[in-house]
Structure formats: C-alpha cells, structure tokens
C-alpha cells in the first residue's frame, strides 16, 4: 500500500541565518551551506563551520540525490502528526555528504530498503519555505 502522500506540512521557523536554505527549497532546489575554507557541506544549515570556526559560508545547490541510511514507519505521531495514521521517518545520506532527517513519500513502506537511492521532493510549507522530503528512484531510471 502506498504511504499517505498528504503528510502535514508544518511551517518551519525561518531566520535570516537559514533563509537561503528555505527559499531554495521553496524554489524546488536543495541548497546547502558549504564552508568556504574547508570546502565541505554543513548540516544542519547554519552560517558557521564547526570544523574550522569560519563564518564564511557559501550556499550551493546540491544534487537532491541520496541514499537511505535508515527508516521507520511511525504509528504514534506527535504534534502536527498526531492524526497521521502512519508515516515514514528516515535518514538520508545526501550525495554531498550530509545525513538528513526527513520523510520518505510516494512509496510503500514495506518496499523500502536501507541503501536504496532516493531523490528530493519539495512540498510547500507556508509562504517562505518548503519541506524537503524524498521519494525512491525507480530501478529503471537509475
């Protein structure tokens, strides 16, 4: 059975520090901060590199492709998800190197497997942001 595709879309708190991430998502792009000095992506989004202390952060578009690290079907949601019958909470390893907490949508939870390839989908949340969820990449389009 397909998972419920209409998950809640709670409006995230958007600050000037993290606005490029959320406006990017709203435009259908996965935009990540990179440390200009270390040249690696920073997760979660922030304008600070915890490796070297640099405040010089560049926002770059990522591929939106990743690999499923782990997943669970949550049957007891809380807050905005309290009435959601069951949904997939997941960790996705982005090809760029970050491990992000997200949902898997447009998929049968029973068909999911760790190591599966996934692609970002963007679902509007309020006027200034979109949630970044992922869906499996069908085998034939790999």
């Amino acid at each position: 059975m397909m998972a419920h595709n209409q998950l809640p879309t709670p409006v995230p708190f958007v600050s000037p520090e993290t606005e490029p991430y959320w406006s990017g998502a709203r435009a259908g792009k996965l935009v990540l901060p990179h440390c200009a000095a270390c040249d690696h992506p920073i997760w979660y989004p922030k304008a600070f590199c915890g490796d070297c202390g640099s405040l010089a952060v560049e926002w770059r578009e990522a591929s939106g492709l990743g690999t499923l690290y782990s997943f669970t079907e949550v049957h007891r949601g809380e807050g905005p998800y309290r009435e959601t019958a069951g949904f997939v909470l997941a960790l996705v390893d982005l090809d760029e190197g970050a491990r992000v907490l997200t949902n898997i949508v447009e998929a049968d939870p029973a068909e999911l497997a760790i190591g599966q390839r996934v692609r970002a989908v963007f679902q509007d949340a309020g006027d200034a942001a979109a949630l970044v969820r992922f869906s499996p990449i069908p085998e034939q389009s790999k």
């Binding site: 979660y44 997943f71 669970t72 949550v74 809380e78 807050g79 905005p80």
Partner: peptide, 19 residues
C-alpha cells in the same frame, strides 16, 4: 526547524537506530 517538521518523535529516532 530541520527535524521536528518531519514528525520526529523519541521512539521514531531510536527506531532509526534499531533498524
């Protein structure tokens, strides 16, 4: 902002660890 919007729960997080 990058986690709770996806319905993160304590059990859900530890379920990810268990899986």
């Amino acid at each position: 902002p990058f986690e709770t919007v996806y319905g993160e729960t304590n059990a859900g997080i530890y379920a990810l660890a268990a899986r």
